[in-house]
Write a protein that binds this DNA or RNA. Structure first.
Lengths: 155, 155
DNA sequence: GAATACTATATTGTGCACAATATAATGTTG
DNA sequence: CAACATTATATTGTGCACAATATAGTATTC
């Protein structure tokens, strides 16, 4: 196998490890989130909204998108589903009617109490050491930052 | 912030780092794969099929699924699209007609020549050090293996 | 060897992701 | 202030993921 062929081997690729690990994590979350009637992306959206509510920060759809790296094509229907369930409000601004503010309702905030136990339950169920996870998170963040740079500076 | 609330902060979660990094990697692949008319999952499928062809191994749909952790609901339509483009064949076995064998066509194999340059081009474009990527890959694999265990052994 | 269980793939339906475009409001410029 | 550009969200269309179910072929058991 040549060097270039070797790099095309599935198992040698970081990208596949990332792809598979991401889906495996989501699969582990699924039964726990299903108890709350939430999907994984909905849960991530609520994490941001819960934080904003705790800090009394108002959030626009685009703020959510920046934070989660998702666009309106993903967020609009997702938020509508959460709204239909009475978990969030979507209110168009009066000063600037292009803007839609998103916030959790009391019912949405109440879900947070049930969600609190999820990270610990997951950690417990999978048995991965917390220190390794923290190190992995930091490394992923660092790689993410490099990937989001338009180009490497030294070219 | 209590310890349980802290674990609910978006930025403290490994899961989000994994989710965001995975999509960032795919976004980096997208323009390169688009030159070949491929999506990222289609590329992963072809990686496996190219390897199988090189090793003269015959692959069933379920073999692909095991390798990529995808089920027929994902693979069947994806493979049909590749088949429509003349890149793969899907042939039902005569001995056991429940089984469908998948293989690349000559046109599909030809795509491999163009795909060979992709990993190097990506590495170059992102400027992440190869050693860090290898370490990250190994750590992700290890976590994946633990996640795919039904339960931790020490409970 | 007919009833039953099992296996492999396909189909259907829901919910993301994301590109492309549309809509509508706001800013800007001559 | 009218033409134009810009901004923010929504809509449409395609392609995954995955649960649930269907279909159809194979193996087993009495």
């Amino acid at each position: 196998m040549t060097a270039q062929e070797e790099t095309l081997a599935l198992d040698s690729q970081v990208c596949f490890a990332l792809y598979a690990a991401n889906r495996a994590v989501i699969a582990r979350y699924r039964p726990l989130l299903s108890e709350l009637g939430l999907t994984y992306p909905q849960y991530l959206v609520l994490l941001v909204l819960w934080e904003a509510a705790a800090a009394s920060h108002r959030l626009r759809v685009s703020d959510l998108g920046l934070r989660l790296r998702l666009d309106s094509g993903t967020l609009t229907p997702l938020l509508k589903r959460l709204q239909e369930r009475g978990l969030v409000t979507r209110i168009r601004e009066q000063q600037d009617e292009r803007v839609v503010m998103v916030a959790v309702t009391p019912a949405g905030l109440a879900l947070r109490e049930q969600a609190k136990a999820i990270p610990a339950r997951l950690l417990c169920a999978t048995g991965v050491e917390p220190d390794r996870l923290l190190a992995l998170r930091d490394e992923l963040r660092s790689v993410l930052a490099e990937l989001e740079n338009p180009e490497p500076s030294d070219l």
